[in-house]
Nucleic acid binder design. Structure first.
Length: 445
RNA sequence: GGUUCUUUAGCCAAGCUGGUAAGGCAAUUGACUGCAACUCAAUGAUCGCUGGUUCGAAUCCGGCAAGAACCUCCA
């Protein structure tokens, strides 16, 4: 199957070919853990988890790495405010992040490195950049020398001159050029590590490079993902460092997800409309939250509104209902559910192979749902086909990370169902209503 | 100022290497039904505006309008 991705590096739809046949290496910038994850943090979590599931499903051996940034000014500040150590704070929020990630149906990445675990390697990496003359030391700080990189700005299409002229660039007399960025910062406050340049902590952009270098056995990986906002400067600077170190752009395919808006506004603290992921998920459930995200193509913005959430709720109910009823019908006919084949999944997969078009993939889910409903209501039920359809749905839900299931009926359930149907046939409605209540209670009807 | 992007039925949204518009939600009508839930069927848009290219454009090119994000640490 040919897989295509939109590569942010070239702004083109490109055929995906992994560096190593049948293996995929992907890295996605994870959160800085100083607060509860908000709903916007769930976009990359859902998008890249779906990508990973899809690639695995079609047969690739995927190594998916997503980090936790557990060293940062905001962390130091928040730890101080909460009277905790940085470690206590970050461990708490890492745990919160993991919880919410699971609730929204994302698998744990293959590896989730923390920056603090890579300090030695980070220092070594910075040191090597200094020795390569790609970085310079200034009074305990270490800065990357952007002028060393000929095509700096290639990812974000930023013209260096425009950047210097047009943008607000802070005064920093330490730097040779305003574009230079910190690899290592001298610090006097909060957690710090010893380094050849004195006590300090690493700059944000270096961490990801080091973790990629350390974890993957290759100097360049296949896919690098993250939020759109990270394109500049974060990813641009990762590329600059990799250019200096390995003369490559660190990743072949760069994928950036769009943002989540809330009620047509960007979520931000100053607007006071930040929604925590845990609140949204607790109120509406993981599948609904995930469906809102998947119903739009990953590069487009998603807007969470009362309407879009309500729509997703109706859709999940509809999908779940068909799945459940179909599976129950099979069980009452004593069909072995493990025997079905995902015969109708090809189109679904081909949609996903087209730059992860989840929106179109979902239309295939609805097509199958409709077929299940039609068959379930027909006079002569084609049980074999129904079984294949249910199995198809099952695999689709797996790939999309939608945590939907059907009840497995035991003997007692089966005889209850039969009694219910018999009572209805004999128009003994008092009895059938009684049994119906039982069945609804058990989640079967 | 620069960069990237968006504008498709009431709402969400796909299509955008050109050939008269997927899907879902909501709504209306009909069918099924002991009641309820579920379900099935039917019904709607010429694609922001405007030029151009073409036998033919939502899809390509130009202009205009409106909106969004990013431009040093926010996914």
């Amino acid at each position: 199957m040919e897989i295509k991705f939109y590569n942010s590096l070239t702004n083109n739809l490109e055929t995906f070919t992994p560096l190593i046949p049948n293996k995929v290496s992907m890295y996605v910038c994870g959160p800085t853990v100083y607060n509860y994850p908000h709903i916007g943090n769930m976009r990359p979590v859902v998008v890249f988890d779906t990508l990973r599931r899809f690639l695995s499903y079609v047969g690739y051996d995927v190594t998916y790495v997503s980090n936790f940034t557990d060293v940062d000014d905001k962390i130091i500040k928040e730890a101080k405010a909460e009277h905790k150590t940085e470690k206590e704070l970050t461990e708490f929020y890492i745990n919160e992040f993991l919880k919410v990630t699971k609730l929204i149906g994302s698998l744990p990445p293959t590896i989730t490195p923390k920056v603090t675990e890579y300090m030695e390697k980070i220092i070594d990496y910075v040191d090597r950049l200094v020795k390569l003359d790609a970085a310079y030391v200034k009074d305990g700080d270490v800065y990357f020398r952007v002028s060393k990189i000929a095509d700096y700005g290639s990812l974000s299409n930023i013209n260096i001159d425009d950047l210097i002229v047009g943008a607000r660039i802070e005064e920093n007399t330490q730097k040779e050029s305003p574009l230079d960025f910190a690899l290592w910062k001298k610090t006097s406050e909060g957690i710090a590590w010893d380094s050849p340049w004195g006590k300090g902590r690493p700059g944000w952009h270096t961490e990801c490079c080091v973790m990629i270098d350390s974890i993957f056995s290759q100097s360049q990986i296949d896919i690098h993902g993250g939020g759109y906002d990270l394109k500049f400067p974060h990813h641009e600077n990762e590329i600059a460092q990799a250019e200096a170190m390995h003369h490559n752009k660190i990743a072949r395919y760069w994928m950036h997800n769009g943002f989540i808006n809330f009620g047509n506004e960007k979520m931000s603290k100053s607007l006071g409309n930040v929604i925590y992921a845990k609140d949204m998920i607790n109120q509406y459930g993981g599948p609904v939250t995930r469906l809102v995200i998947l119903s739009t193509h990953y590069r487009q913005p998603v807007n969470f509104t009362e309407d879009t959430i309500k729509t997703a709720m109706s859709e999940i109910t509809r999908i779940q209902q068909a799945y459940k009823q179909g599976a129950i019908l099979l069980q009452t006919n004593h069909i072995d559910l493990s025997l079905g084949q995902p015969k109708y999944i090809e189109k679904f997969l081909s949609y996903l192979s087209d730059d992860l078009n989840t929106s179109n993939a979902l239309t295939e889910v609805f097509n199958i749902v409709k077929e299940v409903n039609q068959i379930s209501r027909s006079k002569e039920i084609d049980l074999e086909k129904l079984n294949d359809l249910i199995k198809t749905l099952k695999d689709m839900f797996y790939v999309l990370g939608l945590d939907l299931s059907y009840p497995l009926l035991n003997e007692e359930d089966l005889s209850l169902l039969e009694a219910y149907n018999t009572a209805r046939r004999e128009k003994d409605y008092a009895k059938s209503d009684e049994i119906r209540a039982l069945l609804i209670n058990k989640g079967i009807l």
